[in-house]
């Protein structure tokens, strides 16, 4: 193999999408999920800030009308799923960095419980609003 070919083989831009996914266990998948959720959350967070401005000062009726809008409801649901997923991965990284032994497992489990609670609480609430609560 020439030097040129060897260089080309190591150049990230020439690697196939398949080879990007390879890692010993599941690290590459987590890496991609972190990037995917953060990329998607940039426009979603800015949209949420716009939404907060929309309903600010409008009381119950403004908030209900905003959430009942089908596009807004879908965007809220997607934002929450991605944000909870992103939160779980982020908190887990911090736990992995600073905790060892049983405390690590307990804290990751608690983070998982919190993630599930936030997910079910908010998606359940969205469903109730959708049903016409």
């Amino acid at each position: 193999m020439s030097t040129k070919e060897a260089l080309a083989k190591n150049d990230a831009s020439t690697r196939s999408a398949q080879s990007w996914k390879k890692s010993e266990k599941h690290g590459a998948g987590e890496w991609l999920a972190e990037r995917f959720t953060s990329l998607a959350l940039i426009p979603l967070t800015l949209w949420a800030a716009w939404g907060a401005w929309q309903i600010a000062g409008g009381g119950f009726d403004a908030a209900l009308a905003f959430v009942r809008n089908p596009f807004n409801m879908a965007a809220i649901a997607v934002s929450i799923v991605l944000a909870v997923w992103h939160m779980y991965m982020g908190v887990k990284v911090i736990i992995d960095d600073y905790l060892q032994g049983p405390m690590r497992g307990v804290c990751i489990f608690l983070t998982f419980l919190l993630s599930v609670a936030v997910l079910f609480g908010s998606l359940g609430a969205l469903y109730l609003v959708y049903q016409g609560a």
């Binding site: 908030a63 939160m87 982020g90 911090i94 609480g121 908010s122 609560a133």
Partner: peptide, 23 residues
């Protein structure tokens, strides 16, 4: 800021739940 945002998403969930529970 990421850790603080955990409180943010909990409060947003609380906002949605209170909205669903009515006026």
């Amino acid at each position: 800021t990421g850790s603080a945002s955990v409180a943010g998403i909990v409060l947003i969930a609380a906002w949605l739940i209170c909205l669903a529970l009515g006026r």
